[in-house]
Amino acid sequence: MKAVKIIVLACFLSLGLNAIGQSKEAKLKPWVCSNGFWVVETNVKTPLFNKVRFYTNNGLLMEEKEINGARLNVKKRKVKIELKQMLEAVALAWEQQHKSEWVKRY
């Protein structure tokens, strides 16, 4: 009976520690943007030509940019942060443009 209590206690402690670890992990990702997301398209035959598409959270295409002469390694933290900054700028411009269009309609 005592062994069962120890096993149950160990399970609860491991679940609690696991939850704490996940909350810290979410705070450590400075490249995640709440305004939308980006997608990088590249080709094996032309690695120095990249297309970056920026989308809203609803999946609407905001803008598409072409980056020539550089190979983007999206696994690197610096590249992710730069793409996030580009996304925030695109999202702000897109939002202002659509607000002005909405005002013109109504």
Results as ranks from 00 to 15, higher is better:
1 M>P: 13
2 K>S: 10
5 K>M: 08
5 K>T: 05
6 I>M: 08
6 I>C: 04
7 I>D: 08
8 V>Q: 09
9 L>N: 07
10 A>D: 08
11 C>F: 09
12 F>W: 12
13 L>V: 15
13 L>A: 07
13 L>P: 06
17 L>F: 14
17 L>Y: 13
18 N>Q: 11
18 N>W: 14
18 N>K: 00
19 A>W: 06
19 A>M: 13
19 A>N: 10
20 I>S: 07
21 G>M: 12
23 S>W: 14
24 K>W: 14
24 K>C: 14
25 E>W: 09
26 A>S: 14
27 K>A: 11
29 K>A: 13
30 P>F: 04
31 W>D: 00
32 V>W: 01
32 V>M: 06
36 G>I: 06
38 W>L: 00
40 V>A: 06
40 V>G: 06
42 T>Q: 15
43 N>C: 10
44 V>L: 12
44 V>C: 04
45 K>Q: 15
45 K>E: 15
47 P>A: 08
48 L>N: 14
49 F>Q: 13
49 F>M: 11
50 N>L: 08
51 K>I: 10
54 F>Q: 04
55 Y>A: 02
56 T>M: 10
56 T>Y: 02
58 N>Q: 15
63 E>R: 05
63 E>D: 12
64 E>P: 02
65 K>M: 05
65 K>S: 06
66 E>Y: 14
66 E>T: 15
68 N>G: 00
69 G>E: 07
70 A>C: 04
72 L>W: 10
72 L>Q: 07
73 N>H: 07
73 N>W: 02
75 K>G: 13
76 K>D: 15
76 K>I: 09
79 V>G: 03
79 V>H: 03
80 K>T: 00
80 K>E: 07
80 K>M: 13
81 I>Q: 02
83 L>H: 01
84 K>V: 03
84 K>P: 11
85 Q>C: 07
86 M>A: 05
88 E>Y: 00
90 V>K: 01
91 A>M: 07
95 E>M: 08
95 E>S: 13
96 Q>T: 07
98 H>C: 05
98 H>N: 15
99 K>V: 02
100 S>K: 15
103 V>Y: 06
105 R>G: 00
106 Y>Q: 08
106 Y>E: 06
